[in-house]
């Protein structure tokens, strides 16, 4: 990285850059999870979906030499996993959380199994938009190379808010998630709405995976995701199920994630691993601060986590 030249000033710059780079998977996965949870189901398996998406995107981008087909393929692979999750969790007496854990194991297994041959070769990456052209400083330019996926995510957040608030389908999703009985009385098929919400949410999580392998860090390896999919679930709680808040929370998490590498780049290696744990500690601290034993968190979909 070119941040060494800036000395201490490089730290905030690297964190700002990392916020947008590292925040992209958080953003896409949390928007997907937000949509899923609005319909009343939890999908913990998005960690597995993220890994499968990352692997699919990288493999397809390598095989077709077209990174955008990789992105689409990652979304489709996510939809397949989402379908399994949606179908299983709508069986009677099946626990969402347990299926989610199973999907994490299954999704990461599939990703590592099929991704083995793609660890070595390098796949074409998504082109980035250089928004730092105004600055003569190379590290500022480097920091402002923005991924189109990040921009898609940023645009998606208000779109999703509008979808929930002002569209007929958004109302269906909210009704199913808040009060399945009322939804049933409206003549909505709960199973269908949840299925679509989970599959669409998984599509976004798959694309989140693509942003890992085709943008930042831009490689495929078995350690590429370090729990971003799970942190995104916690992040949705923190964001009170509001897409715009998901955007801000994702940026915060991306910044926390960039802390360790940013300090390392200016030579502070003491406690490198501890700084890397910053996002997890932050998530935990936020959950402790925002949760309460006595009431449901405001904004939580009414039927969230209840069994069929």
């Amino acid at each position: 990285m070119a941040t060494e030249a800036l000395g201490w000033l490089g730290v905030p710059l690297a964190i700002a850059a990392g916020t947008m780079r590292g925040g992209t998977p958080f953003l896409l996965v949390s928007l997907g999870e937000c949509l899923t949870e609005k319909s009343g189901k939890i999908n913990l398996g998005l960690e597995g979906t993220l890994l499968t998406g990352a692997m699919t995107a990288y493999a397809v981008s390598y095989l077709t030499q077209s990174p955008w087909s990789g992105v689409i393929a990652a979304g489709l692979a996510g939809m397949v996993l989402g379908f399994i999750h949606a179908w299983l969790t709508q069986q009677p007496r099946v626990n969402d959380v347990a299926v989610g854990i199973a999907m994490i194991i299954f999704g990461s297994g599939i990703a590592f199994f099929l991704g083995k041959p793609f660890i070595q070769p390098s796949a074409p990456q998504l082109a980035t938009l250089a928004l730092g052209g105004w600055s003569a400083n190379a590290s500022v330019q480097e920091a402002l190379r923005i991924s189109p996926l990040f921009i898609i995510g940023v645009l998606l957040a208000p779109t999703l808010t509008w979808f929930f608030k002002s569209t007929r389908w958004g109302l269906f999703v909210r009704a199913v998630g808040d009060s399945p009985d009322a939804a049933l009385a409206m003549g909505i098929s709960i199973a269908k709405v949840r299925m679509l919400s989970i599959v669409a949410g998984s599509f976004l999580a798959g694309i989140g995976g693509a942003s890992l392998s085709l943008y930042y860090p831009g490689i495929w390896s078995e350690r590429i995701s370090s729990g971003q999919g799970l942190m995104a679930v916690a992040l949705v709680i923190f964001a009170r199920w509001q897409p715009i808040q998901c955007l801000y929370a994702s940026l915060l998490f991306g910044g926390a994630q960039a802390l360790g590498p940013a300090l390392q780049s200016i030579g502070i290696t003491q406690g490198y691993y501890l700084f890397n744990a910053a996002p997890y500690i932050l998530t935990l601290a936020i959950m402790i601060a925002t949760c309460s034993p006595n009431r449901k968190i405001s904004g939580a979909p009414g039927a969230l986590g209840t069994s069929n």
Partner: peptide
């Protein structure tokens, strides 16, 4: 945390896995 703060035990225990692993890496490499 579950009982006194209402923190979801599944997510908090999972996060603590990552914290434990970071602690292990920190201690054995430092």
């Amino acid at each position: 945390l579950r009982h006194y703060r209402g923190v979801n035990e599944t997510i908090s225990s999972l996060l603590m896995n990552y914290i434990a692993i970071a602690l292990l890496n920190h201690l054995v490499s430092g």
